[in-house]
Amino acid sequence: MTISQVSFGSHEPVLDVKDLTVKYIGDTRSTTAVDRVSFSIGTGEVFGLAGESGCGKSTIANSIMRLLKDPAKIAGGSISFGGKDVLAMSPEELRRFRWQDVAMVFQSAMNSLNPVLTIGEQIVDIFTTHAGYSRKESLRRAAELLELVRIDPARLKSYPHQLSGGMRQRAVIAMAVALKPSLLILDEPTTALDVVVQQEIMAQIKDLQRELGFSVLFITHDMSLMVELSHRMAVMYGGRIVETAKAQDVYANPLHPYTQALMGAFPPLTGPRVPLTGLPDGVKFRNIPDLGEAAPGHLVAPFGADASVIDSANLEGAAR
């Protein structure tokens, strides 16, 4: 299975994931959380990974960062980053790889700040540990970083609880881009935030991305948000990718019934009020086959009576 290398940067893909399989191994049975997933992200490209809770999207992010812990095991496939094999890195290489090459903002990252250290101390820590700057130089850079995400540098002396949720999340994003990584992984970066704050943070990420030129792997279940931000996107279901294409193509012409259901789950803010259906309770797709090309750059897993078995009879309900 190959994913066509349509990407926005003209260069080599920054990240290339091939046939990644991750299993959670239990005593009596094991679960395949990610099943033969392949995708690549070009330089300066924003790639979205959409899907519901439990579909394996966070597991993929953790695999790329090599953060998986037992009982999760990478059972197959390869992850290469800028030509280097991520799965073969030694602990020392990994330490440099994380944060310097790839940084990640977690789902409730704003709660991952250390409550007993000031924001400044935590940012300075990054520079002294990973970049080897002096304390004074680190402080100067920390102030610059906060300015980059439009937080008053005076806030360096604040403790996390003195900042609002949105400010904390912005501080975490600033910390993630501190060492100018070439890939930023955002795992549901705005889920816990109000819509106005969410919009501001997304705009800020867009600005930062334009300014610093990093690539982004953006994980969310909010299709509207994803289509607005991403260049290309993939939709995951049950550990498999069911559809991948340019974000606008997925939005304008979703082909897989599951993609259509996800799209239908977000009523529009404009236009007439039309009845939507979503995915009926109990509809499940099984044995999703490999992707096939439906249009140039638009790949979709074949579906139908034979290709993917559906538990409930009413597939019509899932399609729009």
């Binding site: 819509v195 969410q198 919009q199 909010d222 509207s224 607005e228 529009p268 803010l269 404009t270």
Partner: peptide
């Protein structure tokens, strides 16, 4: 402000 913050790909222009 609320309306403007809702992501909606159908909205012409951000």
């Amino acid at each position: 402000l609320l309306v403007s913050a809702v992501p909606d790909p159908a909205r012409a222009g951000s």
